[in-house]
Computed example of a mutant assay.
Amino acid sequence: MSDASHVVTVAAAQYPIDAFTSFADFQAKAARWVHDAATRGAELLVFPEYGGMELTSLLPDAIRDDLQAQLPALQPMRDEVVATWRELAETHGVTLLAPSLPWQLDDGRFVNRAWLLGPSGRANYQDKQIMTRFENDLWGVSAGEGLKVFDTPVGRLGVLICYDSEFPDLARALVEAGAELLLVPSCTDTEAGYYRVRLSAQARAIEQQVALVQSPTVGEALWSPAVDINVGRAAVYTPCDHGFPADGVLTIGHDATPGWQIARLDLPRIRELRHHGQVNNHADWSLQCDRLSEKIPTISLY
């Protein structure tokens, strides 16, 4: 069972897409990042959507440069990738959402899968639910298994992968299922895309009276056709209410420099807002359904 009675130190990565010359280079990078956050007291580490695409740098150029060919070519590495993150979570005693990567299912389809690793070595995954135009139309990555809630030493977690955060009912379903902290790994290639995810995440924090942790990819990787431009800021968002920042931003990156955004997150205090906050967004959610139960009339003012 989770222990969410304490203040949790969370770390959100602003993660660059690097090119490697060997798998050992990837493992060394992963070890540096986890060690850095853990030595700063982080108990929960969140990495971004599609951070695993940097492993395509190990493929032959012709395959790396082909959006469709790179997907099956990544699969022989996937188990060792998960094992690398699992070992780091165990070694440092942290809960860790690893960078997502395309994952081939038994039926041949590819999904966008993010693995959540616990300090005990146990692991499970969350697949992206709603696919972007790029994923659907150009890349061939499709929706995977449904939503899950993860019971962890840092609390009950839900994961909304990038675009999923833009759909309020997905967040509501996770919260109703017991999630008290939502993780939003993201990968966006424009300022507009970044702000869509950021503002949606902040809206979900207000609507559901929960905290969200956003981790984006950052910087350029012009050798990659899938993740060539990366725009974002790592952040931790809270409700705009008693005891939290008025704008709901607990911490956020000020520029695109790779690194961690680390914050102390008081989950019990956030839970208390649902009972004694300035507003009752979470409890009042069903009222909108009542107000929409009848047909909306059109009123002429001509």
Rank of each mutant, 00 (worst) to 15 (best):
R269Y: 02
A263F: 13
T190S: 13
V227G: 05
D255N: 14
R233L: 07
E191M: 03
P268A: 11
V249P: 03
D241F: 13
V184H: 01
G219N: 02
H254S: 13
H254G: 14
I252C: 13
W260P: 01
Q202K: 15
P225V: 11
E207M: 10
T190A: 07
E180G: 15
A173G: 08
L222I: 14
G155A: 05
E166W: 04
Q214E: 15
P216Y: 09
L212Y: 00
W139R: 05
Q208G: 10
L170V: 08
A177Q: 11
R271I: 06
V249S: 01
F150H: 00
F167Q: 13
P258T: 10
V149K: 01
S142A: 12
D255F: 12
A173R: 15
T190D: 05
R172D: 10
P185I: 12
Y195P: 04
V159I: 15
V227I: 12
H275P: 00
I262Q: 11
D164M: 01
L183G: 05
P239Q: 11
Q214R: 03
D241H: 12
I161K: 02
I206M: 14
L199F: 00
A211N: 03
G259V: 05
I229P: 00
A201F: 07
D241C: 07
G243L: 10
I206H: 11
L182W: 09
V149F: 01
V197Q: 09
L174G: 00
V218W: 10
E145Q: 15
F134P: 03
H275F: 15
T257L: 08
A234T: 00
D189A: 12
H242W: 07
E220V: 12
H254W: 02
C162T: 09
Q214Y: 00
A205I: 03
T132D: 04
L250S: 05
F134I: 11
G155L: 06
W223M: 01
R172G: 13
R196Y: 10
D189P: 08
